[in-house]
């Protein structure tokens, strides 16, 4: 489903070169809810951006659902993002001038889809995510949790095989965060897709079935979360981090 091999990425910040990723190897074979954990500056967001075809690796290969996205041109990458995967950001991820329904329909509108199909699909997704009555509201009239659910609905418009989430609960309280994590797990299971969530919270990671721990630009290990609560995940995570 997702395969990264020897992926490297270097940035230049001012006069300094930063090795964000130093040969990441990662493989996800089947649909499910996965996490990427790491400290600030570990390279987890960089990896997510590469997976989302928002950036290209300096070296290595990335395949998503059998497509070698590291070889895509700018135009191909844009087309791939439209239907090949869904992205959910930490915040500011809705277009403030569009209603919830319009935000969900936006990728389809960009692809020139039939308006009737888009309306029907957005209504389905709003129902699926418990937002049936909120379709006409603009983001400013919705809570943070509701906005994030709209963002998930938008990401699911084309039922992509992969959904990427970059710290999606960063701006939510604990109750809303917990509800969202469960929702992502449910979506992965019911829609039979691969959800990859970047997080630094053990509580979030505990909802995933497997967590990849990133440190210093490489995958330092994986945590199988079955049978672990947030504390258990935190303890395993500390083992990887503490081993540094």
């Amino acid at each position: 489903m997702i395969r990264c091999a020897e992926v490297e990425k270097t940035y230049t910040l001012g006069s300094e070169r930063v090795h964000a990723l130093r040969g990441v190897d990662l493989s996800i074979e089947r649909p499910g809810f996965y996490g990427i954990m790491g400290q600030s500056g570990s390279g987890k967001s960089t990896l997510l951006h590469l997976l989302a075809a928002l950036d290209r690796p300096d070296a290595g290969e990335i395949e998503i659902a059998g497509k070698a996205i590291h070889t895509l041109s700018e135009r191909e990458a844009t087309a791939f993002r439209r239907k090949g995967l869904g992205i959910v950001f930490q915040s500011f991820n809705l277009i403030p001038t569009l209603s919830a329904s319009e935000n969900i329909e936006l990728p389809g509108l960009l692809a020139g889809e039939d308006r009737q199909w888009l309306r029907k699909r957005s209504a389905e997704l709003l129902d699926l995510l418990g937002l049936g009555e909120r379709g006409r509201h603009r983001p400013e009239a919705m809570s943070g949790g509701e906005q994030q659910r709209v963002a998930i609905a938008r990401a699911l418009l084309y039922s992509p095989p992969v959904l990427l989430a970059d710290e999606p609960t960063g701006n939510l309280d604990s109750a809303n965060s917990d509800r969202l994590w469960r929702l992502l797990g449910k979506v992965a299971e019911e829609q039979d897709i691969t959800v990859v969530m970047v997080t630094h919270e053990p509580a979030a990671a505990s909802h995933c079935e497997r967590v990849f721990v990133i440190r210093d630009g490489t995958v330092h290990g994986t945590i199988e979360t079955e049978g672990l609560d947030a504390g258990g995940v935190a303890a395993r995570y500390q083992q990887f981090i503490g081993a540094a």
Partner: peptide, 16 residues
């Protein structure tokens, strides 16, 4: 800026 970036992220082309 951010809204435009999101549109690009979800598949909006430069031309659009």
């Amino acid at each position: 800026q951010r809204g435009l970036a999101i549109i690009r992220c979800i598949g909006g082309t430069k031309a659009q």
